[in-house]
């Protein structure tokens, strides 16, 4: 039982990171119906920003987090302006390929600048509490709480503010909303900033939880987060959160009871089956097609 609880805690930690990244995928998809395949690499850039700020500027935890989020968000907006905006009316596949290209560019650019894996220093005091046989580290608590806080803020922004209303409106109908005086370009930039900023925050937390970072770390985590977004129903913000926690739980439980090399296999097989049974995800709605 204690073992199970311990694993559940690990699952919550991993799941919250997946959920944070999945939010970026799902927000961009909701508003542009485009899969931003570079998102996993922005997550990686977040981890490297955190490394730079923590090692070379020797900042403490809170400023590092803020500057990481800010930096990655700015990078996200710049990428959107330079690479995705010219393609907004192009065939959708061109946008996807561009996103893949941007992702490869970020990976290889980082690799060219830093060929060796880096080690992120511990930014917070590491204490471990033991309750019975269950051990809880301060880092786990921090990752889980911080992710939940960020998600609550996001949910508030999307559901309760004017900008959030504009986002939901754009994802509802792209042709009418600009006629109503909604500044579409600004809202899209804002969406990218929030989505990639969350990804950057996730990158930093991942870097703190698993301290060795390398330029290719974003690929696998990015795809996993993407799966989370799909499992929840892509385009649906609450679905992305649920999907992230489900995937985290599945992965940790598989690794806990089977050889850990089966983890990816089970995760992807589950995705495969889910997509055949319920192709639009858990919270997603099927889109009727018209001829």
């Amino acid at each position: 039982m204690a073992y199970l609880f311990q694993q559940a805690l690990n699952a919550l930690q991993l799941g919250s990171i997946y959920a944070l990244i999945a939010l970026g995928y799902t927000m961009v998809y909701g508003i542009l119906t485009m899969i931003n395949f570079a998102h996993g690499d922005l997550f990686m850039v977040g981890a490297f920003f955190c490394f730079l700020l923590a090692v070379y500027l020797e900042l403490s935890f809170v400023p590092t987090l803020l500057f990481t989020i800010l930096g990655v968000a700015m990078l996200g907006v710049v990428i959107e302006r330079l690479a995705y905006k010219p393609l907004r009316n192009a065939p959708r596949v061109s946008a996807i390929i561009t996103a893949l290209g941007v992702g490869l560019f970020l990976e290889n650019f980082t690799l060219a600048l830093s060929p060796y894996p880096k080690h992120i220093p511990a930014l917070i005091e590491h204490t471990t509490w033991t309750i019975g046989t269950v051990s809880i580290s301060s880092l786990q608590i921090l990752v889980i709480v911080l992710s939940l806080v960020l998600m609550l803020i996001l949910d508030f922004v999307v559901q309760r503010t004017k900008a959030g209303m504009a986002m939901r409106a754009i994802s509802w109908d792209k042709t009418i909303v600009p006629l109503m005086g909604v500044p579409v370009n600004k809202i899209i930039s804002l969406t990218f900033a929030i989505g990639t900023g969350l990804g950057g925050a996730a990158g930093m937390m991942y870097g703190l939880a698993y301290p060795v970072i390398d330029p290719y770390m974003g690929i696998m985590v990015g795809w996993k987060a993407f799966i989370s977004a799909v499992v929840g129903g892509i385009g649906n913000i609450r679905g992305a959160m649920i999907g992230g926690f489900i995937l985290g739980a599945v992965e940790i439980m598989v690794a806990a009871f089977f050889p850990s090399t089966y983890r990816d296999f089970v995760a992807f097989t589950l995705l495969f089956i889910l997509l055949i049974v319920r192709p639009y995800g858990i919270l997603g709605k099927p889109h009727p097609q018209k001829v």
Binding site: A83, A95, V102
Partner: peptide, 21 residues
């Protein structure tokens, strides 16, 4: 060296923007 892997995706992005097909 490694910079060609930086150059190639950049070329792809430019190609997609100026000649998306």
């Amino acid at each position: 060296g490694i910079w060609r892997m930086v150059f190639m995706p950049l070329m792809l992005v430019l190609l997609m923007i100026y000649r998306p097909r």
